[in-house]
C-alpha cells in the first residue's frame, strides 16, 4: 500500500513539475514548485517506510523547513519587481 501512495505522489509531482515548466506566469511557476516541495516531503516520508528506514523522516522534516524558506525567499525577491520581460512571461 505504501507503493500505491508513493506512485500517486510520484504522478502528482510530475504534474506539478509540468505546470512549473508551462507557466504561464512567474507566480504559477512558484506555486508549482511549492506544491512539488510539499509532495516531496510526503514522498520521502512514504519512501522511508517502503524501504524500511524510518530515519528518512529526518530528511523529510528538514526538507519541509527548507521548502518554506525557499518559497518565501524567492517571493521576497520578486514581490515588488515587475519583470522586464513581462511580455515574454505572458506568452
Amino acid at each position: 500500500m505504501f507503493l500505491a501512495a508513493a506512485i500517486a505522489l510520484m504522478v502528482a509531482m510530475m504534474l506539478a513539475i509540468l505546470r512549473a515548466f508551462m507557466g504561464p506566469t512567474l507566480y504559477d511557476r512558484i506555486l508549482a514548485v511549492n506544491l512539488f516541495g510539499t509532495k516531496t516531503v510526503l514522498f520521502i516520508a512514504v519512501l522511508g517506510y517502503l524501504m524500511g528506514r524510518p530515519e528518512f523522516l529526518d530528511i523529510a522534516l528538514v526538507y519541509a523547513l527548507i521548502n518554506f524558506i525557499t518559497v518565501i525567499g524567492v517571493l521576497r525577491f520578486f514581490e515588488y519587481k515587475r519583470t522586464v520581460d513581462d511580455s515574454k512571461e505572458e506568452a
Binding site: 500500500m1 501512495a5 504522478v11 502528482a12 504534474l15 506539478a16
Partner: peptide, 17 residues
C-alpha cells in the same frame, strides 16, 4: 488513509492543470 491521501494529492495536481 494512504490511498485516500494519495488520491487527494493527485486531485490537487490535476486541479492546477
Amino acid at each position: 488513509l494512504l490511498i485516500l491521501g494519495g488520491f487527494m494529492c493527485f486531485s490537487g495536481a490535476v486541479g492546477i492543470h
